[in-house]
Simulated assay, not measured.
Amino acid sequence: MPKSKFFEETYPNLCRFVEEIGWIEIGESEQIDSFVRAYDFGGTVYEGKASYPNMEAALQDLDAHIKEYMDENGI
């Protein structure tokens, strides 16, 4: 069965970031007031809002801010 490329096509920046640069965290945290977060070896790249109406909105926000980070840093 062929693999679906839906996630990679829908969230290309997020996928590239995780494959090449850093990692993400999704979900509530006792220490951090954000639902989605992105990190590289230099530290925090992005911390999202405390909540989102749904998972799609959270992933869209994360993908958009990761794109901004990569653009600002020439990645």
Results as ranks from 00 to 15, higher is better:
residue 51 S to T: 12
residue 53 P to Y: 06
residue 18 V to G: 01
residue 41 F to A: 01
residue 11 Y to M: 06
residue 24 I to H: 07
residue 57 A to N: 12
residue 7 F to R: 00
residue 51 S to C: 07
residue 7 F to D: 03
residue 18 V to H: 04
residue 63 D to G: 03
residue 61 D to K: 00
residue 58 A to F: 08
residue 64 A to S: 15
residue 35 F to I: 06
residue 38 A to V: 00
residue 38 A to L: 02
residue 67 K to W: 07
residue 7 F to M: 06
residue 26 I to Y: 09
residue 29 S to H: 12
residue 17 F to S: 09
residue 1 M to T: 11
residue 54 N to H: 09
residue 41 F to H: 11
residue 12 P to I: 05
residue 6 F to I: 12
residue 27 G to W: 04
residue 23 W to I: 01
residue 44 T to S: 09
residue 66 I to P: 02
residue 73 N to W: 04
residue 25 E to Y: 00
residue 65 H to G: 00
residue 38 A to T: 01
residue 46 Y to C: 06
residue 17 F to G: 09
residue 34 S to Q: 05
residue 43 G to H: 07
residue 20 E to S: 12
residue 64 A to D: 13
residue 27 G to V: 05
residue 51 S to H: 10
residue 54 N to V: 03
residue 55 M to R: 13
residue 23 W to D: 00
residue 51 S to N: 13
residue 6 F to K: 12
residue 53 P to F: 09
residue 52 Y to C: 01
residue 17 F to P: 08
residue 23 W to V: 02
residue 67 K to C: 07
residue 52 Y to I: 08
residue 73 N to C: 01
residue 29 S to F: 06
residue 21 I to T: 12
residue 44 T to E: 10
residue 44 T to H: 03
residue 9 E to T: 08
residue 56 E to A: 11
residue 68 E to I: 13
residue 8 E to Q: 15
residue 22 G to W: 04
residue 69 Y to S: 07
residue 17 F to C: 10
residue 32 I to W: 10
residue 31 Q to H: 10
residue 62 L to T: 05
residue 47 E to R: 08
residue 11 Y to V: 09
residue 1 M to V: 04
residue 36 V to W: 02
residue 19 E to L: 10
residue 69 Y to F: 15
residue 58 A to D: 08
residue 55 M to H: 03
residue 33 D to W: 00
residue 59 L to C: 05
residue 11 Y to T: 08
residue 71 D to Y: 08
residue 11 Y to N: 08
residue 11 Y to L: 01
residue 49 K to Y: 10
residue 20 E to F: 05
residue 21 I to F: 12
residue 26 I to S: 00
residue 64 A to F: 08
residue 74 G to H: 13
residue 75 I to Q: 10
residue 55 M to G: 06
residue 60 Q to S: 07
residue 53 P to K: 14
residue 60 Q to L: 14
residue 28 E to Q: 13
residue 1 M to R: 04
residue 54 N to P: 03
residue 53 P to R: 14
residue 12 P to S: 10
residue 13 N to I: 00
residue 70 M to I: 06
residue 60 Q to N: 11
residue 7 F to H: 02
residue 51 S to F: 09
residue 15 C to H: 05
residue 15 C to M: 14
residue 75 I to P: 03
residue 10 T to P: 06
residue 11 Y to P: 03
residue 36 V to G: 01
